[in-house]
Design a protein around this nucleic acid. Structure first.
Length: 915
RNA sequence: GCCCGGGUGGCGGAACUGGUAGACGCGCUAGACUCAAAAUCUAGUGGUAGCAAUACCGUGCGGGUUCGAUUCCCGCCCCGGGCACCA
C-alpha cells in the first residue's frame, strides 16, 4: 500500500477536530506549559511559505511538550484591527469587519491545512466587542492610575488624590510638569477643572497636546516605532511633526523597570540590545550655567562633565523657551529667521540632509567652574525633547560639536592633548586631561566621578539619569480601532462607567476624516452629541494583552479570572519575528507590569522565553527586457544590450529556464514578446530577496501541501536550517523529506503487505533507536529542529538497511516523530492496533545502556603533552585493549601496570594522566 | 559612524565544555531494474597528485596560544540585522 498522504491527512484533521482533542482545560494534575505564537494581522494576501515557519516550530514544541506530560496551552487568534482593512474600505466601500472576517477565514483554512494543534475554542479577535470590552477596561485602569516613584509601582489615582489632600505634591513631583508644586491647602482650594488638569499630568494613560508624528497620507498620527527614517513604516509616506491633542501612555515612568526586567527573561542578546537601545538609559549631570547680563540661567545635560573645561560654546534647541529672553537686539532678526526655518523643517529633512545650520544668540553663558564666557548658539542638531534641550559643546571630544565649531569658525580648546589631532573629535575617556585646571593630569574616566561630586557639592547641578524613550502616542484618527471609553466635559476627560463597557464601535457611512482632521467617528452626530472621544486606539492596543485573554477567553466578568492567570502564568515560549522588538513586545511588557502593580495578575514579565524565527526569503527570477522594446534576452547575452530587469513569476521558471509560452500568456503586454535564446533556452537571472507578492517570488503553502503533504511540508520547513536564521526557500530540496516519509512508510508496508512483526529487537536496532530518541529529546527541547529531522533520516536509513520491521522499534520511533509529522504518525499508530490517539501517549524515554559508544577513546597526556589516544571496544574485555603510539617506550611503560597489551592510535578527547 | 549576529564543499547546513571537519539533505556522476522514462535501489562525491594504497592542502585573510584550533586571543576584510544627530 502506498503512502496516501492526502487521504491520511484529511482523515486525521477531521477526526482531531471532531474529537476536540486540542481543547485544553484550565486545570490539570500535569505541569503547565504555555506556547504562544505572535498572532497575525489577517491581511488580504493570505499566507506564503515564509509565514508558517514560526507556527510550525511552536506546533512541534507544543506537541512535544504534550507528549512529555505537560498540559499545553497553544492558542491562536487575530490582530484584527488595523490600517490596511480601513484603507481597503476607503477604496472599495466594503466594511472592514467584512473584509477582516473573510481574510480570517482564509488564514484559518490555510493553517488547518498544515495540521496545527491550536485550541480554536480559545480563538480571540481583537475587533470583537467581547474582546475589546477588556482592552477598554485595561485602558481605564491605565487612565485611573499613576506611577508612585517612591514605591516604584502603579497605584490607583485615588491614592494620589488622598496624598494631595494630605500633603500636596511635595513628595511626588509631577511627571508631566516637574516644576509645578502645590500644598495641601492649595490643592483643596482648586476648582474641579484645575484639579483634573493636574491629575492628567500623573495618569498612566493621559491626554495632552504635543508634537506628534503626523502622516498626511494615512491621515493619522503614528507612534515613534511606527516611523522609520522619517517615513511611515506602513506605506513609506512622509511624516511631519504636528501639534495635536493626543492620548499617550506614560511608558517613560517604567523605563528603568523595563530595562531591569530584561535581566530576568530569556530573549536573544540582540533583542535585549534593541530594547535597551530604545529605552536609551544614560547617566549624566544637569549643570546650571549663568548667563551674562541676564537673570535667567540655562541648564544643560551632559554625560561628560569631565570635559567641562573644554566647553567652547553652548547650543539651545530651536524650540527652547530661553531664546526669546536672551537674544540680543543685534542678532534678533537672524535668530527669528533661524527659528522659523528650523520649525518649518520636517524630521525627514533634518535626517536626510544632515546640514550644519545654526545661529548665534548674541548672549554668553558663564562657565561655573572657571568663569569663562561662552557664546550661546541655536541649532537644530540639539533636540528639544531630550535632556534639557540645551547642551554644552566640547568640540575636541564630540563629533557634532566639532563639525559645528569648524563650520562657524569657533575656536577649539584642546583638553586631551595628542588624543586630538585637530581634524576630528575624539570621544575617548582614556586621555589625561589638560587645560582643565584642577583636573589636569587626571585620566578622564577617573575625573568623571570627581567633577560630578564637585558640581553637586557646590550646588551647580546634580546627577541625572535620562532616557531616550518617549511616552507612547496612543490615539489614531481612524475608524477601525477600539473606541476610547472616555467622555469629555468642560475640556476634561472622564472615564465611562465600567458597566457601560464595551463601548461599541458604531457603524459609519464614510471612512473619511472628521471636519477638523479627527477620526471618522467625528462625523457621527449621535457619537459627538454624547461628547465621546472621537479618536480610536492604535493597532498595538489589542495586542498588548491578548496572551492573557487566551487563558480565559469566554469570561464576561473579567479580562481573565485570577485562577486562570495564576494557573497559566507567564508564556513559557513566545515565537515571533524581531520586527516587534520595540513596539508590541515593549508595550506588552508595560501592560503586564501595570496589571501586576495593580494586583490583577501575579507575574511581571509576560514572556519567559522568546524565539525569533528567521525569515524565509524568496528565490526570485528575473528576465531582461531590451530597453524600449518587447524583446527579452537570455541572461548570458544581456551584456550585449541595454536592458531593464523585470521580476517574473517563479512558477513560470523551471530551475532557471523560462517557460516562454507561460510567460507570454501571463500579462497582455507580454503577448507578443520575443526572446533571444542561448542554446535554445531562455535562462533567467536570480536573486535572493524578501518573499513578497510584488516580486512574484511567493510560494503558497497550500500548493506545497497539495503536492507533498502537510507532514512533508512541516518537516521540510524545520529541516531548512536553524529556526532563528533567515534562509531561502528552495522547492527542490523538499524531495529529500518526501523520500524520507515514503521510506518510513515502507518500514511498515512492503508493496501491499503489512510487514511489521513482533520479533525481539537486536542490539544494533535498539542502539539506533535509543540514540535517536535521545537526540530528538534534546533537539526538541532546544529548538534544534533541523538536526532533529536529520536524525530521523539517519534512523530510518539504518533501519531500512537492517531490514528492521519490528514493532518494538517502530512504535517508539513514530511516537517521537509525532510532533514533526503528526498525520503519518497517527495513521501508523492506529495501523499498529491502537484505539486511542497517539497524541495521548507518552514520549519514549531512552535507555543509557544502549548509548555506549562501541569504541571508547581516551586521549592521554603524558607529562603534560599528548602522546597518544587509547581506543578500545566497549564490549570487548579490558584485557584486549589496543593502541599504537608515537613514543613507544613511555607509553609501554605506562601501559605495563595497567594490564593493557596492544593499542591503536586515534585522535580523541584529552584526559590528563600523571605517569 | 556605533552596537549585535555571521563567514565551513556546487547549494541549504552539521560538528558536545578545544579532540577523526563537512553529519543529514539537495545537486551531480556511475551502475542495477526497465523497450524507454518515472519511481526505487546500490556505489561515489572538499581540492590537488596517483591505477592504487596513500600524500599534501583545506572552515574569510594575517598573526598568536596549544601536543592539537571551525572552536580561544589580537589585528584586518566581507556579508546580514539593528540604531543613528539622544549631548
Amino acid at each position: 500500500m502506498d503512502y496516501k498522504f492526502r487521504e491520511i491527512e484529511k482523515k486525521w484533521q477531521k477526526k482531531w477536530k471532531d474529537s476536540k482533542i486540542y481543547h485544553v482545560k484550565n486545570d490539570s494534575s500535569k505541569p503547565k506549559s504555555y506556547v504562544l505564537d505572535m498572532f497575525p494581522y489577517p491581511s488580504g494576501t493570505g499566507l506564503h511559505v515564509g509565514h508558517p515557519l514560526g507556527y510550525i516550530a511552536s506546533d512541534v514544541y507544543s506537541r512535544y511538550k504534550r507528549l512529555k506530560g505537560f498540559n499545553v496551552l497553544h492558542p491562536m487568534g487575530f490582530d484584527a484591527f488595523g490600517l490596511p482593512a480601513e484603507q481597503y474600505a476607503i477604496e472599495t466601500g466594503q466594511h472592514p469587519a467584512t473584509t477582516t472576517d473573510n481574510n480570517i477565514e482564509t488564514f484559518k483554512k490555510q493553517m488547518d491545512n498544515i495540521g496545527f494543534c491550536f485550541d480554536w475554542s480559545r480563538e480571540v479577535r481583537t475587533s470583537e466587542p467581547n474582546y475589546y470590552h477588556w482592552t477598554q477596561w485595561i485602558f481605564l485602569k491605565l487612565f485611573n492610575s499613576w506611577y508612585n516613584r517612591q514605591e516604584k509601582q502603579a497605584q490607583s489615582i485615588d491614592t494620589l488624590v488622598q496624598l494631595f489632600e494630605k500633603e500636596g505634591n511635595k513628595n511626588h513631583e509631577c511627571p508631566g510638569d516637574e516644576q509645578h508644586k502645590f500644598t495641601s491647602e492649595q490643592w483643596k482650594s482648586l476648582n474641579e477643572k484645575t484639579q483634573q488638569d493636574i491629575l492628567m499630568n500623573y495618569r498612566l494613560a493621559y491626554s495632552g497636546v504635543g508634537e506628534v508624528n503626523w502622516c498626511e497620507a494615512l491621515g493619522t498620527v503614528l507612534a515613534n516605532d511606527e516611523v522609520v527614517n522619517g517615513v511611515s513604516e506602513r506605506g513609506g509616506h512622509p511624516v511631519i511633526k504636528k501639534k495635536l491633542r493626543q492620548w499617550y501612555l506614560r511608558i517613560t515612568e517604567y523605563a528603568d523597570r523595563l530595562l531591569e526586567g530584561l535581566k530576568s527573561v530569556d530573549f536573544s542578546e540582540a533583542m535585549k540590545e534593541m530594547q535597551s537601545n530604545w529605552i536609551g538609559r544614560s547617566e549624566g549631570v544637569d549643570i546650571k550655567f549663568n548667563i551674562k547680563n541676564h537673570e535667567e540661567n540655562m541648564v544643560v545635560y551632559t554625560t561628560r562633565p569631565d570635559t567641562i573645561f573644554g566647553v567652547d560654546f553652548m547650543v539651545l534647541a530651536p524650540e527652547h523657551e530661553l531664546i526669546n529672553q536672551i537674544k540680543t537686539k543685534e542678532e534678533e532678526n537672524k535668530v527669528d529667521q533661524y527659528v522659523a526655518y528650523a520649525r518649518g523643517r520636517s524630521e525627514r529633512e533634518r535626517i536626510a540632509e544632515k546640514k550644519i545650520t545654526g545661529c548665534f544668540t548674541g548672549s554668553y553663558a558663564i562657565n561655573p567652574l572657571n568663569g569663562k564666557e561662552i557664546p550661546i548658539w541655536i541649532s537644530e542638531y540639539v533636540l528639544s525633547g531630550y535632556g534639557t534641550g540645551a547642551v554644552m559643546a566640547v568640540p575636541c571630544g564630540d563629533e557634532r560639536d566639532h563639525r559645528f565649531a569648524k563650520h562657524f569658525n569657533i575656536p577649539i580648546t584642546n583638553i586631551i592633548g595628542s588624543y586630538y589631532n585637530g581634524e576630528e573629535a575624539n570621544p575617548t575617556k582614556d586621555a589625561t586631561l589638560q587645560n582643565s585646571e584642577f583636573l589636569n593630569g587626571i585620566k578622564m574616566e577617573d575625573a568623571l566621578p570627581l567633577i560630578s561630586d564637585k558640581i553637586e557639592e557646590k550646588g551647580l547641578g546634580q546627577r541625572k539619569i535620562n532616557f531616550k524613550m518617549r511616552d507612547a502616542s496612543f490615539s489614531r484618527q481612524r475608524y477601525w480601532g477600539e473606541p476610547f471609553p472616555i467622555k469629555w466635559k468642560n475640556g476634561n476627560a472622564y472615564a465611562l462607567d465600567e458597566k457601560d463597557l464595551p463601548l461599541e464601535l458604531p457603524h459609519v457611512e464614510t471612512y473619511q476624516p472628521g471636519p477638523e482632521g479627527e477620526g471618522p467617528l467625528a462625523n457621527i452626530s449621535d457619537w459627538t452629541s454624547k461628547n465621546l472621544e472621537t479618536n480610536t486606539m492604535p493597532g498595538y492596543a489589542g495586542s498588548s494583552w491578548y496572551f492573557l485573554r487566551y487563558m480565559d477567553p469566554h469570561n464576561n466578568q473579567e479580562f481573565a479570572s485570577k485562577e486562570a492567570t495564576e494557573y497559566w502564568n507567564q508564556v513559557d515560549v513566545y515565537v515571533g519575528g524581531t520586527e516587534h522588538a520595540v513596539g508590541h513586545l515593549l508595550y506588552s511588557r508595560l501592560w503586564t507590569k501595570v496589571l501586576f502593580d495593580l494586583g490583577y495578575i501575579n507575574f511581571e514579565e509576560p514572556f519567559k522565553k522568546l524565539i525569533n524565527q528567521g525569515k524565509i526569503t524568496g528565490d526570485s527570477r528575473l528576465v531582461y527586457r531590451i530597453h524600449g522594446t518587447n524583446k527579452f534576452v537570455s541572461k548570458g547575452l544581456k551584456n550585449d544590450y541595454k536592458t531593464d530587469p523585470l521580476h517574473v513569476n517563479v512558477n513560470f521558471v523551471d530551475g532557471f529556464e523560462l517557460d516562454t509560452e507561460a510567460f507570454k500568456s501571463w500579462k497582455p503586454e507580454f503577448k507578443d514578446a520575443e526572446f533571444i535564446l542561448e542554446d535554445g533556452k531562455y535562462i533567467c537571472d536570480s536573486a535572493i530577496e524578501k518573499m513578497s507578492k510584488s516580486l512574484y517570488n511567493t510560494v503558497n503553502p497550500d500548493a506545497v501541501v497539495e503536492e507533498y503533504g502537510a507532514d512533508t511540508f512541516r518537516m521540510y520547513e524545520m529541516f531548512l536550517g536553524p529556526i532563528e536564521q533567515s534562509k531561502p526557500w528552495d522547492t527542490k530540496g523538499i524531495e529529500g523529506v518526501s523520500r524520507f516519509l515514503k521510506k518510513l512508510w515502507r518500514l511498515f508496508y512492503d508493496r501491499e503487505e503489512w510487514i511489521v512483526n513482533n520479533e525481539k529487537a537486536t542490539e544494533a536496532e535498539l542502539r539506533i533507536l535509543h540514540k535517536t530518541i535521545k537526540k530528538i529529546t534534546e533537539d526538541s527541547e532546544n529548538f534544534s529542529f533541523n538536526t532533529a529531522v536529520s536524525q530521523f533520516m539517519i534512523c530510518v536509513n539504518e533501519l531500512t538497511s537492517l531490514k528492521s520491521h519490528k514493532k518494538e522499534i517502530l512504535e517508539p520511533l513514530i511516537i517521537s516523530l509525532t510532533p514533526y509529522a503528526p498525520h503519518i504518525s497517527e495513521e501508523l499508530w492506529h495501523l499498529l492496533g491502537h484505539e486511542d490517539s497517539i497524541l495521548n501517549t507518552d514520549f519514549p524515554i531512552y535507555d543509557e545502556k544502549y548509548l555506549k559508544e562501541s569504541t571508547v577513546t581516551y586521549p592521554i597526556a603524558i607529562n603534560g603533552k599528548t602522546r597518544l589516544t587509547l581506543s578500545f571496544d566497549a564490549e570487548a574485555d579490558k584485557e584486549t585493549i589496543k593502541a599504537t603510539v608515537l613514543d613507544n617506550e613511555v607509553v609501554e611503560k605506562w601501559i605495563e601496570g595497567k594490564n593493557i597489551r596492544k593499542f591503536i592510535l586515534v585522535p580523541g578527547r584529552m584526559i590528563n594522566v600523571v605517569v
